[in-house]
Simulated scan of single mutants.
Amino acid sequence: MNILIVGASGLVGGNIYHHLKAVSEFNIYGTYNSFEVPNLIRFNSSINYKSYPKIILETAWDVIIHTGALTNVDFCEENIADSEYYTVESTINLVKLSKVHHSKLIYISTDYIFDGKDGPYREDAQVNPLSIYGKHKLISENIVSQLNDYLILRITNVYGDELRNKNFLSRITQDLLLGNEKSVSGATDQFASPINALDIAKAIFNLIIDDKKGVYHLASTDYLSRVQFLQIIKKYFNLLKIESYKTSDLKQKAERPLRGGLNAEKFLTEYSDFHFTNIDDYILKLLKAHDAKL
């Protein structure tokens, strides 16, 4: 089986890439755009489809996993053309590639397609994106859903091991492990369902093996506000100082879904033995690894 992971230099794509390589005998190929990573193919999926590299165009892909997008929500709000280019255009092109090779296309989406009034959301909940980012992700979902063979996986607040260490939880815990005092603020009125990127990779492996189709929500056991997220970290690190705020105080460019998050009941019903880890699990793993180095 030939699998292409678009955006394998990022948090989600990187975890999928390394996990599938570790647990399967599939032929796994990954791409990067701006952040170069050894063994990955340089590739901008938003360019004209006919200009794709030969290896991308001509390999008979069984599965294409599209993890790439422009995820800076406030930037997208003020740069609509850029958001459309990196999120919608890339999806249009990868749908074309999927049709050529009759590939399954797995698209990574978000809870930002909902308005945040009634989360955590099930797969069949009414969509109503508030931001340009959310609107472009929903447009992309609709494009993908025209294929005969597709998976749309919605996730939110992803954390985990990452080459660039960009995600909030990994970055802040690494600083705290070094003994650096941190003062961090969080919203009391933004709720979501954080998930470890490695769990996403494990779930995708199961879905590929079982040839699943349609829409799935992936979420862990944690459902909490941004401040509650920080309070979990503080249980392990007294050096963390927490300040709270209301989302409206920030006057951000893009409106956020306040009661967002996702309900993974559908996935867990089909995979009753699957175990989603949580924030505590991840921090304890980091502490154990840190102690082992001492």
Rank of each mutant, 00 (worst) to 15 (best):
G134L: 10
G134Q: 09
H136F: 08
H136I: 07
K137L: 07
K137F: 08
K137S: 08
L138S: 13
I139C: 09
S140W: 09
S140H: 07
S140Q: 07
S140P: 01
E141D: 12
N142C: 01
I143T: 05
I143M: 04
I143G: 03
V144W: 05
S145I: 05
S145Y: 01
Q146G: 12
L147N: 03
Y150T: 07
Y150H: 06
Y150F: 14
L151K: 12
L153I: 11
L153A: 04
L153E: 03
L153Y: 06
I155P: 02
I155G: 06
T156Y: 04
N157H: 04
N157V: 01
N157G: 04
V158F: 03
Y159T: 06
Y159S: 07
Y159E: 05
Y159G: 06
G160N: 11
D161T: 13
E162R: 15
E162H: 15
L163C: 08
R164L: 12
R164Q: 13
R164H: 10
R164C: 07
N165M: 09
N165I: 11
N165Q: 13
N165E: 13
N165K: 14
K166W: 09
K166V: 07
K166E: 07
N167T: 11
N167W: 12
F168T: 10
L169C: 12
L169V: 12
R171G: 14
R171A: 15
R171D: 14
R171F: 15
R171P: 04
I172F: 11
T173G: 10
T173P: 10
Q174F: 03
Q174M: 05
Q174Y: 05
Q174L: 04
Q174I: 03
D175I: 06
D175Y: 10
L176D: 04
L177R: 08
L178H: 10
G179D: 02
G179I: 00
G179W: 01
N180V: 00
N180C: 00
K182D: 07
K182Y: 08
S183R: 14
V184R: 10
V184G: 05
S185F: 14
S185D: 13
S185N: 14
G186R: 08
A187G: 09
A187R: 06
A187E: 11
T188D: 03
T188Q: 00
D189W: 12
Q190T: 06
Q190I: 11
A192R: 12
A192V: 04
S193W: 03
P194C: 09
P194M: 05
P194N: 05
I195R: 04
I195F: 02
I195V: 07
N196M: 12
N196I: 13
A197C: 09
A197R: 13
L198E: 02
L198F: 01
D199N: 02
D199Q: 02
D199T: 00
D199W: 02
